[in-house]
Simulated assay, not measured.
Amino acid sequence: MSAETAGHVGPDRDDASHVARNRDHWNTALAPVFGRLAPGQWSRPEPAWGHWSVPESELRLLPGDLGGRSAVELGCGTAYVSSWLARAGARPVGVDVSAAQFATARAMQARFGVGFPLVLADAERLPFPDAVFDFAVSELGAALWCDPYRWIAEAARVLAPGGRLSFLTMSPLFSMCVPDDGPAGPALTRPQFGPHRRDWGDSVEFALPHGAMLRLLRSCGLEVEDMVEVRAPERPARDYDYLPAAWARRWPGEEVWKVRKRGRGA
């Protein structure tokens, strides 16, 4: 059975142009926006996730035993998630391709007195040995902007046996319902079978159907422990022009995957 027949398409190994495009997009267009958000995100008393700032107490992306654990955040941006990990007693490393984002991250480290390594690198080609981390996490970072067939394989490679990976990304349903020039609506605008990337001109995002994601995770030696489809709150603090809260109350715009690498360990 071919990959296309099975309902997914693997990566084009000769096409990694999205890496440079996404790097440029973050350095120029998005880094200033997230730089303004960073102080509030770093100062949260409890982690909160995604577009709707859903509390960690509801989504539980983080293991309960982070003390002394080695961790890596893939596509960390301003590294506020890594700061939460550090405060919980973990030993995090933040990885991102955007130097502009790291300028904000370093300023926040100095402001809040929380230090950890920041590594300028592509999550699809991690500069780490095999099996060195107990936990990996991505919140709309590598999980959205990197090719899943590449970054998930790399995350699995650097996780120790028994290590965990948690990631939050946009749902495949959102990907099928959002047009090129407007908000997500009640009609399907893209097919489920076909390329797993969305090309926005100056940036590229990725989304896999659930069947393809399950097969990919298993092929990388990862076992799914949970998958949570995120619902927008009744009274969100804000709305988004591409993801209206009214839409995300009816259908999941985001989803969380929690997986563990097979073998003994953490």
Rank of each mutant, 00 (worst) to 15 (best):
T5I: 05
A6L: 08
A6E: 12
V9P: 01
G10L: 12
D14T: 15
D15C: 08
D15L: 11
H18W: 15
V19R: 13
A20E: 15
A20L: 10
R21T: 11
N22D: 14
N22W: 03
R23I: 09
N27D: 15
N27A: 08
T28E: 14
A29I: 06
A29E: 13
A38K: 00
G40A: 14
W42S: 10
W42H: 04
R44E: 06
S53Q: 09
V54S: 07
E56K: 12
L59C: 01
G64I: 01
R69K: 12
A71I: 05
E73I: 08
E73W: 07
C76R: 02
V81P: 02
S83E: 08
W84V: 05
A86E: 05
A88C: 11
R91N: 05
G94P: 01
Q101M: 15
Q101L: 10
F102Q: 09
F102M: 06
F102T: 04
A103G: 12
T104L: 13
T104H: 09
R106K: 13
A107V: 09
Q109W: 06
R111W: 03
F116D: 02
L118D: 01
V119Y: 00
A121W: 02
E124K: 05
E124P: 05
P127S: 14
A131F: 03
V132D: 03
E139A: 02
A142T: 13
A142Y: 07
C146R: 03
D147Y: 05
P148R: 00
R150E: 10
I152C: 03
R157A: 11
V158G: 00
A160H: 10
A160C: 14
G162P: 13
L165T: 05
L168P: 00
T169K: 07
M170Y: 09
S171W: 06
P172K: 10
F174P: 01
F174T: 06
D180T: 14
G182M: 14
P183T: 10
G185M: 04
P186L: 14
A187W: 08
A187V: 08
A187H: 10
L188A: 04
T189H: 07
P191W: 03
P191Y: 07
Q192F: 00
F193W: 03
G194P: 04
G194A: 06
P195N: 11
H196I: 11
R198P: 02
D202V: 09
A207M: 08
H210M: 12
M213P: 02
L216C: 04
L217T: 00
S219V: 02
C220R: 08
E223M: 08
V224P: 01
E225K: 04
V228Y: 09
E229S: 07
P236L: 08
A237V: 11
Y240Q: 06
Y242K: 15
P244H: 01
P244L: 08
A245R: 05
A248F: 06
P252E: 07
E254K: 01
E254T: 04
G265N: 03
G265E: 05
